[in-house]
Design a protein around this nucleic acid. Sequence first.
DNA 1: CGAACCGTTGAAAGCATTCAACCTCGGTGG
DNA 2: CCACCGAGGTTGAATGCTTTCAACGGTTCG
Lengths: 250, 250
Amino acid sequence: MLSTGSTAQSNFAAVAMMKPQLETLDELFAAVPRETLDIGAGLFWEGDRAQHIFEVSEGVLRIFKIIGDGRRVITGFLYAGDMVGLTLRDVYLYSAEAVTPVKVRRLTKKAFQDAIEHSPELRPRLFALMCDEMAAAQDQMVLLSRKSAEERVCSFLMLTARRMQGDRQVGRTVQLPMSRQDMADYLGLTIETVSRTITKLIARGVIVPNGRHAFDIGKPGKLLALCGDGDSYEDIGERGAKTRQAVWPH
Amino acid sequence: MLSTGSTAQSNFAAVAMMKPQLETLDELFAAVPRETLDIGAGLFWEGDRAQHIFEVSEGVLRIFKIIGDGRRVITGFLYAGDMVGLTLRDVYLYSAEAVTPVKVRRLTKKAFQDAIEHSPELRPRLFALMCDEMAAAQDQMVLLSRKSAEERVCSFLMLTARRMQGDRQVGRTVQLPMSRQDMADYLGLTIETVSRTITKLIARGVIVPNGRHAFDIGKPGKLLALCGDGDSYEDIGERGAKTRQAVWPH
DNA sequence: CGAACCGTTGAAAGCATTCAACCTCGGTGG
DNA sequence: CCACCGAGGTTGAATGCTTTCAACGGTTCG
């Protein structure tokens, strides 16, 4: 499938000739022209033949699955720098749509695989990326499995705030480019519950509205405590001794 | 699928001769002695330094995270042939315990990485494995996000039945080695809800108890329809005028 | 200006949880 | 041998959080 031989034709060759030692996955896509997606436009659909790998270079994408009777589950939001469509299967397992105007670059799966296969630099980076994705997926399972509506919304605000850092996070502002419906479908709630929860957080001064799709974080410590992750940091909390089980003697 | 004692033997020979072309990830572990875990014993804990990669060669393991106030979320069950501890981070992101008596083999992370790095055969296999894991994680997000208690339990039964296939699935029997509490923590429900749901499924003849930790599937078609994945197959049930919303958004 | 979309708010209903009691089955010890 | 016990599992009733149904407010755009 992926030969190590010196038969490095394919469009990867062009890239390799210009700069034989790619060091980041970004650079892999650098030579490709950017494509534009309007708000709401689809990049690909669940079930489509998976022929390309994409890199988001601007904007926000939502990744989702739909089950039988129309229920939608958003499994993630992707920001600039994230990669989409990473799979070995022959079809995509989810759909991708633009939440905001989006710019992406695409590589054929084959080109991407060749590049990875030929670059000992890139492989650990790809591996790390997939590990991060798994970690995020597990955190999301925790959220969906055991967190209350308030904890879910607070976790989402914190996550998004963290993501924006270095990007455009001015002070303590969180940008939420997606609709309430998107948030609901990501958090496993209804649009009404999301709305009500946000209203309550505002009333308590935890967050301060700044337009409908941005909030200033009024009480960062409180917000963090309300995430329900309750590990360290919880200066505000009162919950007593935590029974951290003894380590297994083996 | 599993490496039995005898194949382990021959693989060991292959490795001993320094045969450079391993073809499956299984073989990587074949030369390593197996370790035994009693029921309930931990393999590693969330936060431990991640120094090893494990392969389950026998039994069932549960993977879980615990948040602040004792809430536990089981993110997966691992069966013979599955790998555990796959991460590039320096600490494990979850804990692993034995549900049944378990046998595992371990490789240091470094040894594993070296093997992968030197084997063009193995890399795509590892990649595929991680893709499968992501796919499973996303299915679980769908389950936790939008499925009813009944749909969750049925999905779990189907999943487990499928996993057992070829292994020890005799006829239409599903083995559930884990406790109801484990099931609840995996499905994002309480133990009582799991119990009640199972009772109802039995009453309807969808499943037939066969000891407390095994069920015969009385009505496979019905069970499948009740999973809520609602793609084809679901004409078996009665559930008359189900407002089958337009199928696909494109 | 009105229509459509998005978001908020209110009231009622529903599904899962919580609290509590009871059952069942192995294991144990008198 | 059998009574007792404890863990795991089941069942019942009440509570509660989120959902559902419905109406209203606000903003954007033709």
